[in-house]
């Protein structure tokens, strides 16, 4: 009798658990698993959205692997990530350190840094087209020299990357600031008593203890940078001559300009696999070097 009651209670608990899980489960299935499955399915079809999809086997996959444009977009994206991530991480860490010292005006600057991040990327892009315009642009007017920031083959990608850094650095700063706040002051005080200088404390105490934050920031910002689309779409449209044709934009143009939704799906899956691999590598690296518990 008692065991029957226990079984009923367990069944009831399981039901509760499933009931509580159901909303999330529906979200995950409907908005993640089903779309991924559709994209996988689509990658084996040729489809322009308005005529019926046609099965083409591996043709889309072979096409994107042999078409230099997709390879170019991966290279451009790699270069973009390599400019954006170190720059915004270093700047974010620098600004977070300044804010952490609680100097006068810290509150104001904290808000200021975050403002670009909360702005709509398209609006940010439009604003920067005015700033970087070759004729009558704000930046060229300021420096008194005409530089074609967005149409020069060598300058276009760094220019777009710097706009991206500008808009994301506040996000990075916020997380580093939070990470710095979690480091017990007793540790740095002890190091100071032992005669460690500011730089030594930073490199041997602050940075190692910031690794959980660093892991999170690097992972999320690298994924965001690799998926960049809107800034490029507004500023350069992928030009000049594909110099800023990042993979997010390439997928969009393949789908909506070339009407090759199957190829675009295959490209998206390649990016998905690459980003998942990158996240795994980062995790493996940081797992061996990260201390999460600062109380011991």
């Amino acid at each position: 009798m008692r065991s029957l009651g226990r079984t009923r209670r367990k069944a009831g608990e399981a039901l509760t658990a499933w009931a509580l899980l159901t909303p999330s489960l529906i979200g995950v299935v409907l908005f993640m698993l089903v779309p991924i499955a559709i994209v996988v399915w689509l990658s084996f079809y040729r489809w322009n959205l308005i005529s019926p999809p046609r099965f083409v086997g591996l043709a889309n996959w072979v096409g994107i692997m042999t078409n230099g444009r997709f390879a170019n977009s991966l290279l451009v994206t790699g270069a973009f990530v390599l400019i954006v991530i170190p720059t915004q991480t270093a700047l974010g860490l620098f600004f977070a350190n300044l804010l952490h010292r609680r100097l006068p005006g810290s509150g104001f600057f904290r808000t200021l840094y975050v403002l670009p991040w909360v702005c709509a990327p398209i609006a940010v892009g439009v604003m920067w087209t005015w700033v970087l315009a070759p004729s009558h642009g704000a930046l060229n007017t300021l420096i008194g020299h005409r530089i074609e920031w967005l149409s020069d083959q060598a300058l276009a990608l760094p220019s777009v990357a710097l706009v991206s850094v500008w808009s994301q650095v506040g996000y990075v700063t916020l997380f580093f600031l939070s990470g710095l706040g979690a480091i017990p002051e007793t540790i740095t005080e002890a190091a100071q008593l032992d005669g460690a200088g500011r730089l030594r404390i930073f490199w041997t105490i602050t940075v190692p203890l910031l690794r959980p934050t660093l892991f999170f920031v690097l992972l999320t910002t690298a994924i965001t940078a690799a998926q960049t689309f809107d800034t490029v779409y507004v500023l350069t449209g992928g030009g000049p001559l594909y110099a800023t044709d990042v993979v997010g934009a390439r997928i969009y143009y393949e789908a909506f300009q070339n009407h090759e939704f199957g190829s675009a799906a295959a490209m998206a899956l390649v990016v998905f696999i690459l980003l998942a691999a990158m996240a795994l590598l980062q995790k493996l690296y940081f797992d061996k070097r990260t201390t999460y518990d600062l109380s011991t």
Partner: peptide, 21 residues
């Protein structure tokens, strides 16, 4: 008490599913 929470959870889940539908 446990029963009540089970009922509430089930009703909430059902409402979300039905609302979505």
């Amino acid at each position: 008490m446990a029963k009540r929470s089970q009922v509430v959870a089930t009703v909430v889940a059902a409402a979300i599913v039905l609302g979505g539908a």
